[in-house]
Every structure is written in structure tokens, then in C-alpha cells.
Write a protein that binds this DNA or RNA. Structure first.
Length: 254
DNA sequence: AAACTCGGCAACCGCCCCTGG
DNA sequence: TCCAGGGGCGGTTGCCGAGTT
């Protein structure tokens, strides 16, 4: 089967997204939903491949994304699940609220993988140093190896449902690769909630919110396009597309 | 201060799966 | 049942900033 490329190579921009492109994408998806990424990129006035738009939205722009600062608990989950599932990053990320598969994958390759390698080298007396934002876990040789979560997981025959503390498997609704129907339950004091004029809730973490404000100024979340936003805090993008929105009549720009 | 190295991560690539006609 | 298109996913690349020499 001959597959058509996901986008016409001509005139398709690549590389880093500009704030202006981000703004267009956010504005469009927030307003109309992601009904078709390929078409969406055109209507949003973006010279980008549809896949690129999708990736940018899912990995960076959508609300509820938690960035940086992996907790020990998150790392434990990643390690355990990786042991169990292998490189099923999307499946692993699905168990981590606010984390994307790309981010989990990157974190694995840049941090956890190396750490596990080191742990395997230092079989008995292990000294594991978490990176900057993590508390240092330095088990003394006299300590129970239990304290070295990573070292333990590397060799343990674990099962998924042995994951500590968070019983995701008791909550099948959390299994969705889509970001979390558990947004509300995951809300912490870091979480900001923007209430739109249409009584829609847009739940964002502070990092996302701060990023938006950095790029667009303090009024980003109160921009007019949010008034009828169709973003669903469950992470599913229900466009609520009215016929005239399906093929917007505007000429490329919002 | 400049050059160089390295690590982190955003983004791209290409294959696979699913769905609708 | 077949085919085309769209989305999902994992692997990989390359840019960029921080650290080092």
C-alpha cells in the first residue's frame, strides 16, 4: 500500500515552534477542538504538518501537562512499568498524570536508564544520587536495599499491580492514554483553574499557566476565544463543532 | 572571554493500527 | 474484503543552554 505523506512537504515548516504558532494552535484547538489534525493546521493558519500540530499540542501546549520535577514516586512507577511493559511509553505515561509519553521517554533515556545501569554495576553497595530536584537517596551498605527503589526494581520480579500508593489499576478510567479523566482528583495546590464565561472549566497547572502568560501575557486565559471554548477537562477534545465551524470561513487566521 | 563538550529535551520520522467508505 | 486516510507510538535526531577547560 502506498501511503501518502502525512503532509505536503512543500511549504511545510519544521523545527521549533514560535510563540505565534503556539498561540494560533492553542486558539484554534481551544475553540474548535482537534477534529482533524491535518485540516486543522490549515484552518489554524499554520504552515505545519498535522502531525506536528498534534505533537505540539499533546506534548507541550495542552493544559494539565506537568513539566519537570519528577517525584520519586513517579520515577518508581516508570521503572516498575518499564520493567513490566518495556518501551511502552504511552502506556507508562498513562499512569502518570500530566506526563506525556515523550517526556517519560526522554526522562528514561536521560536519567533513569543511566541510573539503572549504575545500579547494576554496583550490585551491593549502591549510591544513587537523584538529580537536582530530587531528594538524594543514598542507601548505606547496612541499609535494607528497599530504600533504593530503583535498584530494587531493576532486579525485582514485580507486577504492575504492585505499584505502591497509587492504585491506578483500581481505576480503569485512568488507563486511558488520553490525559486523565482524573484531572480534578489530581489537582493540587499548584493547580490553577480558569473559569470561562461559558462556565467551562479549564484546569491548568501553574507551569502551563505560567508558560501561557509568559508567551501571551497575563490575559492569555481570558482571551475572547475562551468564551466559547470547547476544551473538555477530561482531556478528550469534544469539539462541539457547529456546521459553520467545520470548515471555518475565515481565511487562515483566527 | 572564547572555545569546546555534554546533557536535556523538543521535534521529526516512519511504521503500525484502526476506522470508514 | 480492500483500500485510503488519520492518529498513535517508539526510535532517533539535532538544537540549545549549561558547564568545563
Amino acid at each position: 500500500m502506498v501511503r501518502t505523506p502525512c503532509c505536503d512537504e512543500r511549504g511545510v515548516k519544521k523545527g521549533t515552534w514560535t510563540p505565534e504558532e503556539d498561540r494560533k494552535l492553542i486558539a484554534y484547538v481551544t475553540r474548535y477542538g482537534c477534529w482533524n489534525w491535518r485540516q486543522l493546521s490549515k484552518f489554524a493558519g499554520l504552515s505545519r504538518c498535522g502531525k506536528s500540530c498534534r505533537l505540539r499540542w499533546l506534548n507541550y501546549l495542552r493544559p494539565n501537562i506537568k513539566r519537570g520535577n519528577y517525584t520519586n514516586e513517579e520515577e518508581e512507577i516508570i521503572i516498575r512499568l518499564h520493567e513490566k511493559l518495556g518501551n511502552k511509553w504511552s502506556a507508562i505515561a498513562a499512569q502518570l498524570q500530566g506526563r506525556t509519553d515523550n517526556e517519560v521517554k526522554n526522562h528514561w533515556h536521560t536519567n533513569l536508564k543511566k541510573r539503572l545501569m549504575m545500579n547494576k554495576h554496583k550490585a551491593s553497595s549502591v549510591s544513587i544520587t537523584h538529580d537536582d530536584h530530587h531528594e538524594e537517596v543514598v542507601p548505606k551498605s547496612s541499609d535494607q536495599p528497599k530504600t533504593t527503589a530503583t535498584a530494587d526494581f531493576a532486579n525485582a520480579e514485580t507486577t504492575v499491580d504492585q505499584i505502591p500508593q497509587i492504585d491506578y489499576f483500581d481505576y480503569p478510567e485512568l488507563w486511558s492514554p488520553q490525559p486523565s479523566s482524573s484531572v480534578v482528583s489530581s489537582m493540587t495546590t499548584d493547580t490553577a483553574v480558569a473559569i470561562t464565561a461559558a462556565d467551562g472549566l479549564v484546569v491548568v497547572d501553574n507551569a502551563t499557566s505560567a508558560a501561557m502568560e509568559t508567551i501571551y501575557g497575563d490575559n492569555f486565559w481570558t482571551e475572547p476565544f475562551l468564551a466559547d471554548n470547547s476544551y473538555n477537562p477530561t482531556g478528550f477534545y469534544t469539539p462541539l463543532i457547529e456546521p459553520e465551524f467545520l470548515y471555518p470561513s475565515f481565511d487562515g487566521a483566527i
